[in-house]
């Protein structure tokens, strides 16, 4: 749940008047304090590395579009982007929640270890690449090579998935409601058992997806055939 804040507690940071360093330094000044603050960042104008390295129960609302690595390495904070985001939103996130109201560029949620990334629009190529435990819910579609080498965590796609989904996947799980253009090496469709229905239902609820049934999705995971070198796997590469 987002931290409880009162309207009087909202601090506005204007990137039109402040430097990126000053904005991030203000947000990071709460790291490790246990304080709950609500910030509103205005005039982001596509700034890179905005709201990265946070480690506090903050609620950060960004009123506009951001560039690369928005909310990178996030811990605890809830970051909401009222716009689109560039490459690597919430990359290496450890915990917390990042919600993008628009579309996301490539490598959304790359290597993220924990927390929840919600993208209301589409995500570009390599969504969830090398994922290490976080959850990603994309309400639109995802581009090619999504979940490439993903190790742990879950990706939910309400739309379609591009080519080579889940290539060289480890123990991460993928749920797709629409079509999958093609599966990557060692990625296979798997049975939707009751535990998968339950975890998908929970993820959909946490991402605010109403009126969507887990039964509409297919599950994909690793065939675990490439975990060890075998000459018979040569054609897989």
């Amino acid at each position: 749940m987002p931290p409880e804040v009162s309207a009087t507690n909202v601090h506005t940071l204007d990137l039109g008047a402040m430097s990126l360093r000053a904005v991030n330094a203000e947000l990071q000044s709460r790291n490790g304090t246990g304080e709950r603050y609500h910030y509103r960042v205005v005039n982001p104008h596509g700034a890179h590395a905005l709201a990265c390295g946070l480690d506090a129960a903050l609620e950060v609302e960004i009123a506009g579009n951001t560039g690369y690595y928005c909310a990178g390495m996030n811990k605890q904070a809830h970051v909401e982007v009222k716009g689109t985001v560039g490459t690597g939103v919430a990359e290496n996130m450890m915990s917390g929640r990042v919600h993008v109201h628009g579309n996301a560029s490539q490598s959304a949620g790359a290597t993220a270890h924990g927390g929840l990334l919600v993208i209301d629009g589409d995500a570009g190529a390599r969504c969830g690449i090398s994922l290490k435990g976080a959850d990603i819910v994309v309400k639109g579609s995802v581009g090619h090579m999504s979940m490439f080498m993903a190790q742990a965590g879950r990706l939910v796609v309400l739309g379609d998935a591009g080519e080579a989904l889940g290539d060289s996947l480890y123990e991460a799980r993928i749920y797709v409601r629409g079509s999958v253009k093609s599966l990557g090496a060692d990625c296979v469709e798997k049975e939707m058992r009751s535990e998968h229905m339950a975890e998908l239902e929970d993820l959909l609820a946490r991402a605010g997806c109403r009126g969507v049934s887990p039964s509409e999705f297919r599950r994909y995971g690793s065939a675990r055939q490439l975990y060890n070198f075998k000459i018979d796997n040569l054609d897989a590469y």
Binding site: R21, H48, C52, G67, Y69, S107, A110, T111, R126, I129
Partner: peptide
């Protein structure tokens, strides 16, 4: 996984610097 080439790397370095002050 999230950058390719020197132009992206410049932004990645910016991010790492912002995270570590």
């Amino acid at each position: 996984p999230d950058w390719t080439g020197p132009d992206d790397l410049a932004i990645k370095i910016l991010e790492l610097r912002e995270i570590t002050g």
